[in-house]
């Protein structure tokens, strides 16, 4: 299945193409892949994260589906 993956702030350095940036990349993933599997494959730092699937907050054990957009942020805030 195809899932668009966007990484933000300093996590964007972990995009496999090494190009950084916030734009989403299309990932080819096996059916049943969970958010946590993507996080592990990307070797994201071991810290709290804010995860969205299709613009909704999502748990890291949630399964991804074909056509999903996955966005991951490190712990951030502002205002």
């Amino acid at each position: 299945m195809k899932v668009d993956v966007a990484l933000f702030a300093y996590l964007s350095d972990h995009q496999p193409d090494g190009l950084g940036g916030r734009h989403a990349r299309a990932f080819d993933l096996a059916d049943g892949t969970r958010v946590a599997d993507v996080i592990a494959d990307l070797a994201l730092p071991d810290q709290p994260r804010i995860v969205f699937v299709n613009n909704r907050h999502a748990a890291e054990d949630s399964a991804l589906h074909d056509g999903d957009r996955l966005a991951i942020f490190p712990p951030i805030a502002g205002g």
Binding site: P74, P75, A77, G78
Partner: peptide, 10 residues
């Protein structure tokens, strides 16, 4: 987060 990107990280 805040020192690196400032408030506009939001």
């Amino acid at each position: 987060g805040l020192p690196t990107y400032g408030t506009n990280v939001l």
